[in-house]
């Protein structure tokens, strides 16, 4: 149904108290592609990602101005309903945070919150999304055990499945592989590539090679400003800005 992008940012500014951390951000996130946000540590990548689903609001003393349009709707409109906006986006955090309940309930949590009561349907959803995240085979015999008993890599895939189960359009990831071992990281990267057919994916990474491997589109942020954005190849092969060149060459890190 959408002809425009899922996420469009207009004149976004974010302040933590006096600290102006995002400055005049204007950007469009392409649909059904993988977008990577890159930049040195502390430049505001996590902050930008959190703006997309208004999680930024749970930070104390934060102030946001400007607009973020999701599916054409400004989510910072005072009248906007935040839970249904967040439902459109799945989130993978830096470390996996399984909810304090069983594997099954982790997946069923979202659908239940949104009113799904039918046991059969929940069973189907759980199985479907665990398969989607390639976790089903590993956990199908112990769905009732606490999610905390899984390995870190499995937990991150569980978190992915949990996010997919509320049927989002967009997947957000904040350095989703940084706590994982190399093999689990590959696994997640592979998943992202498979999933981009159905979802738009935005993820933060500080590993340039990872961005190069899987991202179609790059956003480079430095000191809270977008320095450059565009298709991955273009940015990496002939960056227009001096700062981007330095970053790509590893001078800024």
């Amino acid at each position: 149904m959408e002809q425009s992008s899922h996420i469009k940012v207009k004149d976004l500014n974010v302040y933590y108290g006096q600290n102006h951390v995002l400055k005049n951000i204007n950007i469009e996130i392409p649909n059904n592609q993988i977008t990577a946000i890159i930049g040195p540590s502390g430049c505001g990548k996590t902050t930008l990602l959190k703006c997309f689903n208004r999680l930024i609001e749970s930070v104390d003393g934060v102030r946001v101005t400007g607009e973020v349009l999701v599916g054409g709707e400004n989510i910072y409109d005072p009248k906007a309903e935040v839970t249904h906006i967040r439902k459109k986006m799945g989130l993978l955090s830096q470390r996996p945070f399984p909810l304090p309940m069983s594997i099954y309930d982790n997946i069923a949590y979202g659908p239940k919150i949104h009113g799904e009561r039918n046991k059969k349907e929940l069973d189907r959803i759980v199985e479907h999304y665990l398969k989607e995240a390639s976790l089903w085979e590993e956990v199908k015999d112990r769905l009732k055990t606490p999610a905390g008993s899984l390995s870190i890599g499995q937990q991150q895939r569980l978190c992915l499945a949990r996010g997919l189960a509320v049927e989002p359009d967009i997947i957000l990831g904040d350095e989703p592989t940084s706590a994982l071992d190399p093999q689990s990281s590959r696994h997640i990267e592979q998943k992202f590539i498979e999933l981009k057919e159905k979802y738009s994916i935005v993820f933060v990474t500080h590993i340039l090679r990872q961005a190069k491997r899987i991202a179609d589109y790059l956003i480079f942020i430095h000191m809270g400003e977008i320095i450059e954005c565009g298709p991955t190849k273009e940015i990496l092969e002939n960056p227009k800005e001096k700062k981007t060149q330095d970053y790509v060459l590893g001078i800024i890190s």
Partner: peptide, 10 residues
């Protein structure tokens, strides 16, 4: 982050 995980599911 645990709160965020739940909030982000709507």
């Amino acid at each position: 982050e645990l709160r965020d995980a739940s909030l982000s599911l709507g």
